[in-house]
Amino acid sequence: MKRLPGTRLIIGCLLASWLMVAASSCLAQPGAFDDVTEVNIPNFQQGTDEFYFYIKTLLSLALAQTDNQFGPVILVPDSEVASQQEQFNQLTQGTTDINWSITTIKREQQHIAVRVPLTAGLFGYRVILVRASDERFDEQLGVAELKALTAVQGTGWPDTSVLTFNGFNLITDSYSGAFESLSNGRADYFPRAANEVFTELASRSTKDLIIAKHITLHYDNPMFFFVTKSKPELARRLEKGLAILTANGDLSRLLTSQHFYIRARNLLAGRELIRLQNPLLSDATKAATASFDSPLEHLF
């Protein structure tokens, strides 16, 4: 397709506008505006810089849609990095106002879920890490063959419950321990989201693990913003802002311009999917996400 004159300029202007809004919401200092609202969010974990920037930019843009009605906002990251479970504990306590995560029925009961998918279902597409020396994965394996092997997942992760529900054999470990369990042969493979896997492989000092060429698991696995129950007005504001960004296409344009998204899309293109059921989705989430069309679905 022939590129229209000025396309790069248009894309550049869109990115510039996103960054300016993010800067005004994220970098402003208290006192810079009258009645500025501080919103506490998690700090980024090592290796998640790119994704964290995307989420923080999206959050800033969504809240900025209603500045005229509610006033400006600044995002204040927590002083310390916390695990996902700790982040939800802080959300319960009200020391964190908003976080983001894969949704489950339990999380939706304990916090206010803003049911707008943040990654077009990207976290539901799982490639698998295997040992580079393991020739069993050189060819496509069937579901029965895969279930006969041993997967590893994190202790307490929603994905662990999904795989168990679908009849997979697995062991659990800590996040770092899961990689070691795969390396030392306690596990045969480690399912990872297609957008996470490149950064994870790059961060390892050894090159003993690779992405299996053929196998991709898929289940509905939306990521939402969650808001502390003590601030329902903040949840309503965020929902309104995300609805605006969804309707005008800015959410999709921002997501699909991200490097992590482009790499994941290219990795997934042409693969055959093993489709699984996710028992952790509430009826409300199923209904809310049914109208969202993921551009990734057109790859298969």
Rank of each mutant, 00 (worst) to 15 (best):
S176L: 15
I262P: 01
L163C: 06
D138R: 15
D35G: 00
Y175K: 09
A144C: 04
L170Q: 15
P30W: 00
E38W: 00
A290E: 11
G156Q: 07
F179T: 04
T285I: 08
A193L: 06
R126M: 05
R192M: 11
R192P: 06
V162N: 02
A193E: 12
V143H: 08
S161N: 11
A62E: 07
E239D: 10
D220A: 14
E86T: 14
D220P: 04
L217F: 14
E135T: 15
P117W: 07
C13R: 15
T155I: 15
Q46F: 11
N266C: 00
T289Q: 08
P279M: 12
K147I: 11
L209I: 11
R265S: 09
Q84F: 11
E272Y: 05
L91N: 02
Y54V: 09
A202P: 08
W157A: 05
R253A: 09
L280Q: 05
K106I: 09
S174C: 13
P5H: 12
N68H: 10
F190E: 03
I171P: 04
D208M: 12
M20Q: 11
S60I: 09
L59Y: 04
S161W: 04
A288E: 03
D173T: 12
A187P: 02
S83G: 15
L118W: 10
A16C: 15
E239L: 04
K56C: 08
P117N: 08
T150I: 15
S174H: 11
I262E: 07
L14P: 00
A187T: 11
T37N: 04
Q84G: 13
Y125S: 01
V152L: 05
N266G: 02
L15M: 12
I98R: 00
L238S: 00
N40R: 14
G31F: 01
I215V: 14
L280A: 02
L273D: 01
I274R: 00
T289R: 04
R115I: 02
C26Q: 12
L255S: 01
A269N: 13
L59E: 07
G241F: 03
N248V: 01
R263P: 02
F123N: 03
F165A: 13
A16Q: 13
E233L: 09
L149I: 11
N184C: 04
F224I: 06
Y189C: 03
A23I: 02
R237N: 06
N89S: 14
H214T: 07
G154R: 09
F260Q: 04
P222E: 08
Q69C: 03
S24I: 00
S101M: 08
I105M: 09
N43S: 14
R271I: 02
F225S: 03
A132G: 08
L91C: 02
I211E: 01
F300K: 06
V36A: 13
T119D: 10
I105P: 00
R263N: 12
N184L: 14
K240S: 08
V130S: 03
S252Q: 09
